[in-house]
Amino acid sequence: MILLETKNLCKSFDGVKALDNVSIEVERNKLTLVMGPNGSGKSTLINAISGFIKVDSGKVIFEDRDITNREPHEIYNYGIVRTFQNPEPLKSMTVLENVLIGRKHSGEEITNALFTSRWMKEEEELVERAFKILEFLKLDHRWDHPSRALSGGQMKLLEIGRALITDPKLIIMDEPIAGVAPGLAHDIFSHVVELKNKGISFLIVEHRLDIVLKYVDNLYVMFNGSVIAHGKGRDEIEKVLNDPKVIEVYIGD
């Protein structure tokens, strides 16, 4: 079952092709990894899918709907959320607030905000959910701390927490374990696997193959803006990793 696919995405910056006919598929309840050396177009790809850059041509299809070049906030409404390369928590806000802010809230409208009764029930439910998520991520004991006090790995977990409260269908993650100690990195991925089993799909861009590969279901390798190899399932992934083209790209890096 395909949840999201891109068809021949193209994007140039100043005449340089950052995306060159990129077509990928993200299957439901699977973890799809896009790997590739620096500057291969991975981040551009997820920025294009999540609406942060507009592509020159090609299509992004999500659940049979064309979502190409929509604004980021519209794409969110389809059930897609993303995390950012550098964990960017809202630093002066508390851990709890960082999770709460993930979900749109009727109390955010100026006309509603004044009347507590209009948003109180929603807020109660949201706080309840947020605490459950923080417990799941083992961050609940720090809920009232400013998020800048968290460690790098905890910030990455917090990003996942913020994504979870939106009840997403697809979570796109930009280097979720960059700069995280190996122990905690495996911890993050065990959370990801648990969520995957609960029905959430993942599209991940990551460098640290040593850690991430064993969790991956589908794999795409990008180089110079195009997909140079891909494989579905364990066996095919093995094949891709032994593909001379891929090895060359990585040695060249």
Partner: peptide, 29 residues
């Protein structure tokens, strides 16, 4: 005071800290 001690105040602060993030989370900046 009444207006800002609410989810509206929260989303404003979110916007101040990181506008891209709240865009990604469905808000029309």
């Amino acid at each position: 005071e009444k207006l800002l001690n609410s989810p509206y105040g929260r989303i404003l602060r979110g916007h101040r800290e990181n506008e891209d993030l709240i865009k990604a989370f469905g808000r029309d900046v």
